[in-house]
């Protein structure tokens, strides 16, 4: 590293600082810090978001409708149900009628 390189680094740093005028000393001391408010803004935003989510008025879910007894009855037909069917069931299910002549209908 030689003097020319040092000069180059020096010129580069001068270029980096060029055009930056400092705020007046008194003004800087008296002004309100701006950054702190900017720092707090994202925090406040995140806090408000969390609070909103936590305190969101959740309506309780509606209660389930009462079950009808009939809805619990499942139609099913087993393969051996025919064994329970008695012959002449239709005849036994009603009262015998006789016509006027005394014959079976």
């Amino acid at each position: 590293m030689n003097g020319a390189d040092d000069d180059r680094v020096r010129r580069a740093l001068e270029a980096a600082h060029r055009g930056e005028t400092p705020p007046p000393f008194g003004t800087l001391l008296e002004r309100r810090p701006r950054r702190r408010a900017r720092l707090l803004a994202p925090l406040a935003f995140a806090g408000a978001l969390v609070a909103t989510l936590l305190l969101w008025p959740h309506a309780p879910p509606p209660p389930p409708p009462p079950l009808e007894l009939s809805s619990l009855r499942l139609p099913s037909r087993g393969p051996l149900d025919f064994l329970l069917q008695m012959p002449g069931e239709a005849m036994l299910a009603e009262t015998p009628r006789f016509d006027a002549k005394g014959d079976w209908p």
């Binding site: 980096a16 930056e20 400092p22 705020p23 800087l28 002004r31 810090p33 702190r36 900017r38």
Partner: peptide
Amino acid sequence: HPASFAWALTCCGFDRQEAEDVLQ
């Protein structure tokens, strides 16, 4: 003050607002 502000700028990655806050 001018040199201090230039140094604050370097410390803050040339963010002017941040440099002002740091220096203050």
